[in-house]
């Protein structure tokens, strides 16, 4: 087999794979959309327009953006936990539909019945939006099973957190995925914390890329704040899975700037740590600097992009605020499929 030293980490690339002008701009737009959308959602939560749990993706934008750019949109399936808004936006789901779901309206992606943690799209092959930590790993492995069963050439991209990586069903899934050579890429979004528990306090071994070692699943640790490195690793992993070689693990080293959910005392980490990531590693700033340095964009043209994105987000927010709630009769629909 190609990567004999599976247990060991595949070597991180020493030269950073460069993006083309189009790729840089695309990555910038996608990540900025997530950032501005999430900021707005946070604001609307504070205004009482969004209820329950609301887990923001701010800081982790490069992960889903780089992976999705390396995937076949509309063909490859994606599935994640409850921190799911960014995944949907990059996959091309309508920001108005996402925001209207957050406010619990009829026009929401789940017609107001799911909320922040439960949105889906058959058309875009997004399977949620799952509230139970770890469940998406088995489900994502099942999406890969279906891909292989049908021979449709699709790959399943299953995202989960560093905390979720300790659930038993993750390892049950790893075993089956390798045993049956299923086309799945396990993407661990290691943002260092599971709620208030740092990875060091929860995991006996903290290099999560080697968690597939005893199943012979290759794994890589990736700088998840650099969208180019994410994209490059994802291309490799997706190609591996698509070509029939079975599962692949990508541990994305990333960081969430905001609290776990909206109410979070954040006593488990220092302000300095957060500030350092924001100032020195921000995924969007990195692209912005390159865009300007390479002369791909000017301050002026970037302002135009910013204005476009803000318009999309404002439109989504206005829509989600004014759209009507579901009809009361909806209480009793969608429980089972009526024959």
């Amino acid at each position: 087999m190609a990567r004999k030293a599976v247990a060991t980490k595949a070597k991180a690339q020493s030269n950073v794979p460069e993006f083309s002008r189009e790729q840089e701009t695309e990555a910038y737009r996608e990540m900025l959309l997530i950032r501005r959308f999430e900021e707005k959602a946070g604001q609307m939560y504070g205004m009482g327009l969004i209820g329950g749990f609301c887990h923001l993706y701010i800081g982790q934008e490069a992960v889903v953006t780089g992976v999705t750019m390396a995937s076949k949109k509309g063909v490859d399936a994606q599935i994640t936990g409850y921190r799911d808004h960014g995944h949907m936006l990059v996959m091309g789901l309508d920001p108005k539909g996402v925001m209207a779901e957050l406010t619990g309206r009829e026009a929401g992606l789940s017609r107001g019945k799911g909320g922040s943690m439960h949105m889906f799209s058959n058309e875009h092959r997004f399977y949620g939006g799952n509230g139970i930590v770890g469940a998406q790993v088995s489900l994502g492995t099942g999406l890969a099973f279906a891909a292989k069963y049908r021979g449709d050439g699709s790959v399943s991209l299953a995202y989960f957190g560093d905390g979720a990586a300790n659930q038993g069903q993750v390892y049950e899934s790893f075993n089956m995925a390798k045993l049956w050579s299923l086309p799945v890429v396990f993407i661990i979004e290691n943002n260092k914390y599971a709620m208030g528990t740092s990875i060091e306090r929860a995991a006996a071994t903290t290099d999560l890329s080697t968690r597939g070692a005893s199943f012979n699943i290759p794994g890589e640790q990736v700088d998840g704040m650099d969208v180019r490195l994410v994209h490059d690793a994802a291309e490799r992993a997706i190609e591996h899975a698509r070509s029939g070689k079975g599962p692949y693990i990508l541990e994305m080293l990333t960081y969430r700037y905001r609290g776990h959910s909206m109410s979070d005392p954040a006593k488990y980490r220092t302000k300095d740590e957060v500030t350092k990531y924001r100032q020195e590693r921000d995924p969007i700033e990195q692209v912005k600097v390159r865009l300007l340095e390479a002369g791909y964009e000017t301050e002026e043209s970037l302002k135009k992009i910013e204005a476009d994105i803000r318009a999309i987000v404002t439109e989504a927010a206005d829509f989600a605020t004014t759209a009507p709630e579901p009809d009361a009769a909806e209480l009793w629909t969608d429980i089972t499929v009526s024959a």
């Binding site: 209820g51 709630e325 579901p326 209480l331 429980i335």
Partner: peptide, 16 residues
């Protein structure tokens, strides 16, 4: 409680 999974929308949740 009504014989349905719990909906998210504020009005439906109240009804459930």
């Amino acid at each position: 409680g009504k014989d349905v999974p719990m909906p998210y929308a504020a009005n439906l949740e109240k009804l459930a």
